[in-house]
Amino acid sequence: MQQPEQVRAAFERDIGNKVLFIKDGKLLFINGIRLKAIADRKMYFASLRARQAQPIVILAELPPEQAFDLWKQHVLGDKPN
Results as ranks from 00 to 15, higher is better:
residue 15 I to P: 01
residue 81 N to L: 14
residue 69 D to K: 02
residue 59 L to T: 02
residue 12 E to Q: 10
residue 80 P to T: 11
residue 73 Q to Y: 06
residue 72 K to E: 07
residue 71 W to F: 12
residue 74 H to M: 11
residue 18 K to Q: 02
residue 35 L to V: 12
residue 79 K to C: 05
residue 36 K to V: 00
residue 74 H to N: 10
residue 4 P to Q: 03
residue 49 R to D: 08
residue 30 I to A: 08
residue 2 Q to A: 15
residue 59 L to C: 06
residue 62 L to F: 02
residue 52 Q to Y: 04
residue 64 P to I: 15
residue 79 K to F: 04
residue 75 V to Y: 03
residue 16 G to K: 02
residue 35 L to A: 06
residue 36 K to F: 00
residue 36 K to G: 01
residue 17 N to M: 01
residue 79 K to Q: 06
residue 5 E to Y: 14
residue 39 A to Y: 00
residue 75 V to K: 07
residue 45 F to T: 04
residue 11 F to E: 10
residue 8 R to L: 15
residue 70 L to C: 12
residue 54 Q to R: 15
residue 37 A to Y: 02
residue 79 K to R: 10
residue 57 V to A: 13
residue 67 A to F: 12
residue 69 D to Y: 05
residue 18 K to R: 14
residue 56 I to D: 03
residue 58 I to L: 10
residue 25 G to S: 11
residue 41 R to Q: 15
residue 42 K to I: 02
residue 66 Q to H: 05
residue 33 I to F: 07
residue 16 G to S: 02
residue 57 V to D: 14
residue 60 A to C: 13
residue 58 I to E: 00
residue 66 Q to D: 14
residue 4 P to S: 01
residue 8 R to P: 02
residue 58 I to T: 01
residue 32 G to I: 02
residue 12 E to P: 00
residue 7 V to Y: 04
residue 44 Y to G: 01
residue 40 D to C: 09
residue 69 D to M: 08
residue 19 V to N: 00
residue 48 L to T: 03
residue 4 P to E: 08
residue 45 F to H: 04
residue 37 A to V: 08
residue 43 M to S: 09
